[in-house]
Design a protein around this nucleic acid. Sequence first.
DNA 1: GTAATTGCAAATGGTTTGCAGCATC
DNA 2: GATGCTGCAAACCATTTGCAATTAC
Lengths: 147, 147
Amino acid sequence: MDPKAQARLQQMVEKLKAQRFRITPQRLAVLEILVESDSHPSVETVYAQVRKRFPTTSLATVYKTVTLLKEMNEVLELGFHNTANRYDALKPYPHPHVICTQCGKILDPPLEGAHGLAQEMSRKTGFLISSHRLDFYGICPDCQRRG
Amino acid sequence: MDPKAQARLQQMVEKLKAQRFRITPQRLAVLEILVESDSHPSVETVYAQVRKRFPTTSLATVYKTVTLLKEMNEVLELGFHNTANRYDALKPYPHPHVICTQCGKILDPPLEGAHGLAQEMSRKTGFLISSHRLDFYGICPDCQRRG
DNA sequence: GTAATTGCAAATGGTTTGCAGCATC
DNA sequence: GATGCTGCAAACCATTTGCAATTAC
């Protein structure tokens, strides 16, 4: 495992332990898979990976761990109403995404123009803003080539 | 009905007729309610309003009309994975929103900083971007006051 | 030993679908 | 009169929940 993922994993494990949550083999596997993937996997995808190591793991268990991490702000949930939610444990805070509507690929390149937007919105409306969603939908270069 | 809503309604009716869709009383009621509300109503909300005029209307009919309008790009769908979708027939193109996580209020004030974001994202990633979602979540002034 | 977690199966909830009867054009 | 629409009920599907058995600490 690369050092960055390793460090992030350790960070999450410690936070769980600190709050007296238990580190079961299934749960640890979910964490490992999350920190090793930069593809913003769905629960179903994580589940498939976990089962390679622990074939008896249930989908509900993966959902429960992911939900727990979300509540601890250790994973960012990208919810979609017409398809499965996707998760990001590497950058568990709001940031811009580009999403390919054909293959489902999700990338999160830095967007200069995105800074200060929440502040501008807050100033204009008086809302106390706690999070946001900056998603751009389109066709990725790969899918453009494929036609 | 205010002139702006009236004009928008006419526009949508003409577009439907042009494509040989029928203007039934239920469908017209859905259109009227949509152009009269700037609150980004849910299907359920539209349904409740429609039933005041046509008590036998079914929820499925409202869903079907809204889906039709969405496919014709005459309504903007704001999909949410953990609550009902909301619809905007007045500005049926992507634009920024602030959403109160307490009362569900949705506003769409102009955001200067939002211009050119899609272009920047496209330039940086090579994606062919067709739509986007700029949502800010927080507590509205009313709910802040209520505590 | 105790309290949390697992895994199963059933429930949830917003949305979609199939289809017979009806209404618009 | 033909075609599209309505309304009902059933299906969908990602996610959540209840609970008895198991396991981490």
